[in-house]
Design a protein around this nucleic acid. Structure first.
Lengths: 228, 228
DNA sequence: CCCCCGCAAATCCTATAGGATTTAAAAATG
DNA sequence: CATTTTTAAATCCTATAGGATTTGCGGGGG
């Protein structure tokens, strides 16, 4: 069930399909849609009180994020849950990509981006860390913002595309991993280490700090996550 | 103008949108559609003798390949030409990802995959290399198959996702507009070097060979590419 | 009790219609 | 002839209708 968000403002001219896209994306990230469950086109259209056409277009665009999977003539389903091994693989992939985006971004850093990163870390600190999604959603948002800001400023759109291919999955795993946020203090310190290296304009150190961070995240998750 | 392809066989149950997707993709790669020109939904529907609905869905899926760009309420246009810098960025990204997929795949190589790689190289050798897309499409297909086979057998689905996010081979034609494949002999030799290292089960050597290959492709393209 | 069949609802998919807006052409005016 | 205005066509977007198929369910037969 996808419920329309409250604060839907009637903007002048907007493409309904874009709105539907955001709505479904939010439902996926909120965990309102469980992994493996079907996402019916007609049903979603009824839920959001629109016609199936924009829903169809929104889902077509969502497919490439990997959050939903499509089977021809069968429809869409929420992507299946992650196993422990999947998470390890995801982190291994991030270990390949993110140090590079960090290094590249460090070389072309601007004051605006720097303050954006500083803000993201500040938001991380003050974000609540409760067990329910409503509570740690701000934390995940800030975390994602930090990493994305770096990827966006790598100056290489293809590295950004590679990052985006993984980005959405990171939050999802945390959401359904059931572990909540248990390592916030460590993670914040590691983010600050990355930030300091970037601030000093040392690309190698920044890349190393990012490697350290992602590696530690992987390690901690492997300890905390339920076995099997 | 997107003309329907000749050998359209009436398969039992097929999703029309999938067929439309392939049709538009082919038109894009053939150069029948020039960069920057609009791709009208209604117009394409008329050309292909279908309704706008499947065309809309196909274009939504095509957008993430970067071959077409969408502006809300304005429609789709063929993506602008690939600049030298764009190509350099693409190769830089591949230099990050592909050595890793190669190394991983080497560790878990199977006879089936090995023979698939051998076949891909064989196809590369006998593929024509003319200047029009219709001629060198087989070459690009074989090239793509080689690299994809490696990524698929890395054992890490997220590395595969990152590789796919680059859309490497699909993008290449955008640079070779009217030039064709000029470095086939070199490229084939480099592929063979990668293959031999994999065959010998030496992951580091395989990764190094892949780095060498992609780096050389980048270098040659920078020399051959038209204009500055 | 279990299995199978038939009907109804749901679903995917495509076509069509029409509203809102932009674009292009044609007509009218200076 | 140049410029502006008006009109027609094209385009994007959404809604609706209906065909083909699948899925769920309840009743009847073994």
């Amino acid at each position: 069930m996808i419920t329309p968000s409250r604060g839907a403002r009637p903007v002048s001219r907007q493409v309904l399909a874009d709105h539907v896209y955001e709505e479904i994306l939010e439902s996926l990230m909120d965990g309102r849609l469980e992994p493996g469950s079907p996402v019916s086109i007609d049903g979603t259209a009824r839920d959001l009180d629109v016609s199936p056409t924009p829903v169809r277009e929104a889902l077509a665009r969502l497919e490439h994020t990997g959050l939903v999977v499509r089977v021809a003539l069968k429809g869409y389903r929420v992507a299946p849950v992650f196993s422990r091994d999947d998470f390890a693989n995801l982190m291994d992939a991030r270990l390949v990509i993110e140090p590079v985006t960090t290094q590249l971004a460090c070389r072309r850093m601007s004051p605006e981006v720097l303050s954006g990163l500083r803000q993201a870390i500040a938001d991380l600190k003050e974000a609540p860390r409760g067990p329910s999604f409503a509570e740690f959603r701000d934390y995940l948002d800030a975390d994602e913002r930090f990493h994305r800001l770096i990827a966006e400023n790598s100056g290489n759109p293809f590295m950004l595309a590679a990052y985006e291919a993984l980005g959405g999955q990171v939050q999802r795993f945390r959401l359904f991993g059931g572990v909540g946020i248990t390592d916030a203090d460590h993670a914040i310190a590691e983010h600050q280490a990355v930030f300091r290296a970037i601030e000093l304009g040392d690309p190698e150190a920044a890349a190393a700090a990012m490697t350290e961070h992602v590696g530690k995240v992987r390690q901690r998750a492997m300890q905390d996550a339920p076995q099997a």
